Simulated scan of single mutants.
Amino acid sequence: MSQLLEVSGVSVSFDGFRAINNLSFAIGSAELRAIIGPNGAGKTTFMDIVTGKTRPDAGHILWGDKSLSLLGLNEAQIAREGIGRKFQKPTVFEDQTVEENLLMALKAKRGALSVLFWKPASADMERVRALAAEIGLEDALGRISGTLSHGQKQWLEIGMLLAQEPRLLLVDEPAAGMTPAEREHTTAILVEAAKTRAVVVVEHDMEFVRRLNCRVTVLHEGSVLAEGSLDHVTANKEVIDVYLGR
């Protein structure tokens, strides 16, 4: 598996507090990875750095086949390179239908002026139907998004990100606030998405991480403490001390 993202020796401090401390690890081009760790471990800051929201003080972040440095790019340029991020709280257009939300996400790839005059072609409608099927909302295309359950809004937002065809999807605590059935469906969506792109899930919920059945990176005080299968990392004495033992 080729490498898609390489984080090397990255550090960042806020007011003297080192949030990320010489962080190094890599993500493959079609890989599902979970990142876990206690509060303050640097999980959100890691995502902020990769998406260009936060600039590191030191280190390198290389992207794609050509090892492009992401540090010279702004947030919009990084998004165009194919890095999508889903925050914990779903952000969908509540007054629009599921179909309109997905169409708008497809449109986001076009220039500002062309969006004003854009009319969806049959291929666009087919893509929207395929996305709706992928996230399990094919029967809800005509529904106003504000009427969806919390879990369904999360799936719609994942669908909107997938509409932009990212090569890397960063997902923050997707299982939070979901019913058991919704969590199961969320697992299926993420596992399927990771067959054709890299998906990194930042999560607190160990049961959800176990369902993902993927490689796990444990962060502690801004650097990698352990890496491997969930069973491997949860048997690590240091991990037990800093995370599971609390």
Rank of each mutant, 00 (worst) to 15 (best):
L73P: 11
A30V: 08
V209M: 07
G146D: 11
G84P: 01
I49R: 10
S67Q: 15
R246C: 01
E94D: 13
N101A: 10
E203T: 11
Y243I: 00
I144K: 07
E182V: 10
L103I: 03
H232P: 02
I27L: 12
T196P: 02
E126Q: 15
E134P: 04
L156A: 04
N22P: 02
L219Y: 00
A176I: 08
A181C: 00
D139R: 15
T54D: 06
V92N: 07
V239G: 01
A105L: 03
V216G: 03
E138W: 05
E31I: 00
I189D: 09
A163C: 10
V7E: 00
L113G: 00
A58P: 00
A58I: 01
K53L: 13
A76E: 13
E75Q: 14
T91F: 09
D57L: 13
S114W: 03
F17D: 01
R183C: 11
E192C: 05
A226V: 09
E6Y: 04
S8G: 05
W63D: 14
L230W: 08
K153I: 04
V202Y: 01
P120V: 03
G146V: 07
Q3A: 12
M206L: 15
V50C: 07
M178C: 07
L244Q: 00
K153A: 04
E182I: 12
D48E: 12
E31N: 06
T186R: 03
P90S: 14
P120W: 04
A163H: 03
A163T: 05
R129K: 14
L116K: 10
S122K: 15
F46M: 15
G9P: 01
V128F: 08
K109H: 08
A121V: 09
L137Y: 10
A112V: 10
R246L: 00
K153R: 15
S11P: 01
L162C: 10
K195Y: 02
K53Q: 09
A235E: 15
A188H: 09
S122L: 06
V12H: 08
G159K: 02
V233A: 12
N213S: 13
T187I: 03
V10E: 12
I35N: 02
S149G: 08
D48G: 04
E134F: 11
N236E: 15
I144M: 09
G40M: 02
I135Y: 05
E99T: 12
L148A: 10
K89S: 11
I144L: 07
K195H: 07
L73G: 06
K119I: 05
K153N: 03
E184F: 08
A130W: 02
G16V: 10
G151W: 11
